[in-house]
Design a binder for these strands. Structure first.
Lengths: 129, 129
DNA sequence: ACTTGACCTGGAGTTAACTCTATATTGTAT
DNA sequence: ATACAATATAGAGTTAACTCCAGGTCAAGT
């Protein structure tokens, strides 16, 4: 029936420090036991994994915070949240395309290096035509 | 016959502050005129654009610094530089794949939102069978 | 009763990558 | 000759996202 912060940290791979920091920032606010200790739920696991995904796709904490606030307000904010995700999707797509282009360019540079390196190390400097 | 820092900044889209910072970090070290002012060359344009690319693909300044040092040492470091790029290429490729997966996941979430939102706003809450 | 380990809070410290400020020079136009 | 804009340096300040520390509480085992 719920996880203490240490256990939750192990499950999610997020440090205790970071969890408390995320709470301060309003990203994930667990229940508390009578004695004041945090009590994370299974739902929180799903939620933090989604937070992770947003972070890994470059969404800044402040935006995630905004999303979390909407989420906390319930169903009435469904549309707005959806729009945030759609917008973020657009940004992500552009980033992927840019990365793909960088990759191609890097490949070109590498193959240039390969021919350069080959040339410099060839015993037939003068060519063999 | 070369560009002053202000002009170079306009050409490359990198702020004067950042250019001086990059110089401090050993990424790009332009010539100097007799009076001590920086004089950037056309070669520097190509080079800074490559630096940009490395940065945009997530290479930290410290690694780029290392690469720049090798580059300054000339042809004898060709192989090592190539290896750096190949390694970086691998990292980039993995990142792209991860992003692609994030994108798919985000799409799933968005289409879930779409059906949720549709359901909530339907006038036929009870179904029509 | 006492120690231990996990937890609590508020706030300070860290790192990367800039970004800006203060002060001093210098080159160009009037 | 003088004003002004661009440049120079050293070093301080900023931002994001953690990361850590000091000092305190509390439940469980010996």
């Amino acid at each position: 029936m719920g996880y203490a912060i240490g256990e939750f940290s192990l499950i999610t791979g997020i440090s205790i420090y970071t969890l408390r920091y995320y709470e301060k920032e309003g990203l994930i606010i667990p229940e508390r036991k009578r004695n004041g200790r945090r009590l994370y739920s299974d739902n929180d696991i799903t939620w933090i994994q989604f937070i992770k995904r947003l972070k890994d796709t470059g969404m800044p904490i402040k935006k995630i915070q905004k999303y979390a606030q909407l989420r906390a307000q319930g169903d009435s904010t469904l549309e707005e949240r959806m729009e945030m995700l759609i917008k973020h999707r657009g940004i992500l797509k552009k980033e992927i395309d840019a990365m793909q282009e960088h990759l191609t360019n890097l490949d070109d540079k590498i193959s240039y290096y390969k021919t350069e390196y080959g040339r410099k190390h060839s015993k037939l400097e003068g060519g063999d035509d």
